[in-house]
């Protein structure tokens, strides 16, 4: 089994348990720290130009006093049939063999068709060059590119961590184990609402959870076949 595993391709997916998510937003800051996401400032943020690869959407239901709130962490859904991919004139947005919806920054010419075509508003555009007041730039992760003005960006499932995890496994001459590769948001999530792993491995935690009755996908009717499975909140 181990030998076949070694050559078998991976399919990276995530499960988000809405019955566990508390809206604490640790994932949001962890993502900023890991992926060199720029600070926008109040003025740009009020124009809707702040960048978040993962955000917590909040929905109010009902009226006072019988009011309920629901939280939904939303990030790039890494769709199998991604609406953002066919519209890119320069193939900056493409699908990797491991199921990631990738963005090649060097190819991007900033036409923003991908962003317009994404039903999840997961893609964000850089309307200006990033700036860090010194010495804040010291915190930048050397494994991740800093995106400049005119570039589209979005969640990569922390591709640098996926690469590092695979390299490490290769160095040790073993297949990648479940739990070896953890994106920054998943790593920090206090309630373990986020789980990441290989869907090609039927025994991985992510595969087991995705088979639960509570599973659903975001905007399923769009036919995008997302790689992120949500588990319904109970009550």
């Amino acid at each position: 089994m181990a030998d076949t595993n070694k050559t078998k391709s991976h399919k990276w997916e995530m499960v988000i348990d809405l019955d566990r998510c508390t809206g604490c937003e640790a994932c949001v800051v962890a993502c900023h720290a890991e992926n060199n996401i720029r600070i926008s400032g109040e003025d740009e943020a009020s124009e809707g130009r702040a960048i978040n690869w993962i955000r917590i959407e909040r929905y109010w239901e009902g009226e006072y006093p019988n009011v309920q709130t629901r939280f939904m962490p939303v990030l790039c859904q890494h769709c199998d049939d991604a609406p953002c991919e066919p519209v890119c004139p320069v193939y900056a947005s493409y699908h990797t063999p491991e199921g990631l919806n990738a963005q090649v920054y060097n190819r991007c010419i900033g036409v923003r068709y991908c962003g317009n075509n994404c039903p999840y508003t997961a893609r964000q555009f850089n309307w200006f060059d990033p700036h860090w007041d010194p010495p804040l730039e010291e915190q930048l992760n050397p494994d991740v590119t800093v995106r400049q003005n005119g570039i589209m960006e979005k969640c990569t499932f922390c591709v640098q961590r996926i690469r590092a995890g695979k390299e490490q496994a290769e160095k040790e001459g073993r297949p990648v184990r479940d739990g070896d590769i953890i994106p920054a948001c998943v790593q920090t999530c206090p309630t373990s609402a986020l789980v990441f792993g290989d869907r090609h491995d039927p025994e991985s935690r992510v595969s087991q959870l995705a088979r639960q009755d509570r599973a659903f996908h975001l905007l399923e009717s769009q036919g995008t076949h997302p790689a992120i499975t949500y588990l319904k909140r109970i009550a």
Binding site: V29, A33, E34, Q139, A184, T188
Partner: peptide, 26 residues
């Protein structure tokens, strides 16, 4: 230079997890 802060998985208080403030302490 410090680049990223994560929870210590062995620590009995937070078992590898961290909140938004802790993540931002850099």
């Amino acid at each position: 230079r410090a680049k990223k802060i994560e929870g210590n998985p062995d620590h009995p208080v937070n078992h590898g997890k961290l909140c938004a403030k802790g993540q931002a302490s850099l």
